[in-house]
Amino acid sequence: MKGDRRAFLKSAGVAGTIALAGCISSTDDSGSTETPTDEPTETTGGEETATQTEEQSTSTADSEVNVGMVYATGGLGDKSFNDMAQRGAIEARDELGISFDQAQPETNSDFKPAQRQFAQETDPNYDLISCIGFAQTDALKENASRYSDQHFMLVDSVVEADNVANYVFKEHEGSFQVGHLAGLLTSQQFSTANAETSGDSTTLGFVGGVKAPLIEKFQAGFEAGAKYANENIEVQSSYIGSFNDPTAGKEAAASMYDSGADIVYHASGATGLGVFQAAKEKGKFAIGVDADQSKSDPDFKEYILASMVKRVNTAVFEAIESEVNGEFKGGSVITLGLERNGVECVYGQTLGSEIPQSVKDKITQSREDIINGDISVPQKP
């Protein structure tokens, strides 16, 4: 029995525990998150530590399925990747009656104990542990082997194990779409109440978080889409080395704007909030990622042309739904691309209506061409 195995492991003194508490943040329909006011608490067990934010309980009185959420570094409140993952769990709670708890590791070394604590816990037993982000891969390889009867799901990477359901996205396809949009708009005079293009720029910008093959897919797609619009366009790129450094994100984007870029796209989690700040100060445009950031970060809606929405919430919800229905997809790799609306170019809530219809028509056509295989999008810059 899973509970008996966990009890044995605990009595044997397995290292790596964290305090777990039922916790969620409330979200509205747009996916924006109310950042919790409680400070993170940290408990050390053995040689490893993990951090979790305690908020209000997620418990559902008659819940039969419990889920543990282990977020990427940067945590909740990034108005992007982690918040979208949490949104999927909230949707599952509201529609399927599950309960979930969540851990917010601060560093990559926290992933292993965070996953492990959920796997060891007996009150409640966690039916599914959702591991959000490619950086959790190595930790999950070890934990999936150690806890072979525990179900896990992983976003953005693949662990080949019968107890892991893997969800990956075609980020390069969605990034091609926003690159196509940026290339078309920077090649013409386009102005709104607060920002404008120069009309003859051939420079765009890309700000990445940590340089890794996954994030390079965003860059590669963006560059390909921009050149599809105008072969003379060059994309300046900068990797910050963190998904939670808005100050560095702002500095990188400001430098790009000063060098002639009208539009900067980011794939950098909370670091991207600094990109939006730079766009506002420079009177230029930005493109968001993962969530519709014109809604999740409305302070900058006048500068966000569009977002490359990556529906991590869909992956989380589908994994939980499969668990609830007794149809856990262990050992599988589920891919979400343009054809399933797993990724999509979503126009900003304020600026979308100002983008010329002729430009939107071209974006629609390139989407169809990618799905049909008429456009092949690279995955490496």
Score class of each variant (00 low, 15 high):
258 D>C: 10
258 D>G: 06
260 G>C: 10
261 A>R: 10
261 A>K: 13
262 D>K: 06
263 I>C: 07
263 I>H: 04
264 V>L: 06
264 V>E: 01
266 H>C: 04
266 H>Y: 03
266 H>W: 00
266 H>F: 11
267 A>E: 01
268 S>T: 01
269 G>L: 06
269 G>A: 00
269 G>W: 02
270 A>P: 00
270 A>D: 03
273 L>T: 01
274 G>T: 03
274 G>C: 01
275 V>G: 03
275 V>L: 09
276 F>C: 01
278 A>K: 01
278 A>Y: 05
280 K>S: 09
281 E>V: 03
282 K>D: 08
282 K>R: 08
283 G>C: 00
283 G>D: 02
283 G>K: 07
283 G>R: 12
284 K>S: 04
285 F>C: 03
286 A>F: 05
286 A>Y: 06
287 I>P: 13
287 I>L: 12
288 G>I: 10
291 A>M: 15
292 D>Q: 15
292 D>A: 15
293 Q>L: 15
293 Q>R: 10
293 Q>A: 13
294 S>H: 10
295 K>E: 14
295 K>A: 13
295 K>I: 05
296 S>W: 13
297 D>S: 15
297 D>Q: 13
297 D>A: 14
298 P>M: 13
298 P>A: 13
299 D>S: 14
301 K>L: 00
302 E>L: 04
302 E>D: 07
303 Y>K: 03
303 Y>H: 04
303 Y>F: 14
304 I>M: 09
304 I>F: 13
304 I>V: 14
304 I>Q: 09
305 L>P: 08
305 L>I: 03
306 A>I: 12
306 A>R: 10
308 M>W: 07
308 M>A: 08
309 V>D: 10
309 V>F: 14
310 K>T: 13
